[in-house]
Simulated scan of single mutants.
Amino acid sequence: MSNRLTQNREHLSGAGHLKPAKGSRLEARAEAQSVGRRQAVCRCEIYSIEGAQKILCALGQGTIVAVGK
């Protein structure tokens, strides 16, 4: 991450592990929940996939806020 970005942005995030990631593959889905002029809130879900079974195993959410010019 460049100095310019770290000087102009504040990043807050959190992640939670719900279940062990057991399966033959993982799938991640991310979406911007809210985007404005000064901040954006994004959410990510991680799924463990085994055959036709898809299990939510982790969640993450982050907020980035502009704090200067």
Rank of each mutant, 00 (worst) to 15 (best):
E27L: 13
G23E: 03
E45P: 15
Y47D: 06
N8Q: 02
P20Y: 01
A30N: 08
S34W: 07
T63D: 10
Q33Y: 07
C42W: 04
N8D: 02
I55D: 12
S34R: 13
A32D: 12
R9C: 07
C57A: 09
G16F: 09
A15P: 08
H11G: 08
A30L: 07
E45F: 10
K22P: 02
K19P: 02
G60Y: 11
S24A: 12
K54F: 02
A28E: 07
R4T: 10
R4P: 02
I49K: 08
G60T: 14
E31P: 12
E31M: 14
E10V: 13
G23C: 03
K19G: 01
T6V: 15
A30T: 12
I49V: 15
I64Y: 02
I64K: 04
C44P: 09
E45H: 10
E10T: 13
G60A: 15
E27M: 13
I64Q: 03
A66L: 14
C42R: 04
Y47T: 05
A28G: 11
S48E: 06
E50K: 13
L59C: 14
K19C: 01
S48W: 05
V65R: 11
G14W: 06
G36H: 05
Y47S: 04
R4N: 02
C42N: 05
L26S: 07
C44T: 14
S2L: 02
G36Y: 07
K19Y: 03
L5H: 05
R37T: 05
C57S: 10
R38M: 00
A40K: 00
Q39R: 00
G23N: 00
I55M: 07
R29F: 09
E50H: 12
L18A: 09
A40P: 02
A28Y: 11
R9Q: 00
I46P: 00
N3V: 15
Q7F: 03
L59G: 06
A15Y: 09
R25K: 11
Q33D: 14
P20N: 01
L26C: 11
C44Q: 04
C44K: 07
C57R: 05
R4V: 13
A58F: 06
V67G: 07
L18T: 11
L12E: 01
H11N: 03
S24K: 11
A28L: 12
R38G: 00
H11M: 12
A40S: 01
R4F: 04
K22G: 01
G62F: 04
G62S: 10
H11C: 08
I46Q: 00
I55C: 08
R43F: 10
R38A: 00
S48A: 15
I49Y: 06
C57T: 12
I55A: 08
I64V: 15
L59T: 14
S13M: 03
E45Y: 08
L56V: 06
V67W: 06
A58D: 06
A52L: 08
A52E: 10
C42S: 12
G14Y: 04
A21V: 12
G23S: 06
G36C: 06
K19D: 01
A66N: 08
R38Q: 00
A66C: 11
A40F: 01
G51A: 10
L18H: 08
Q61H: 09
G14P: 05
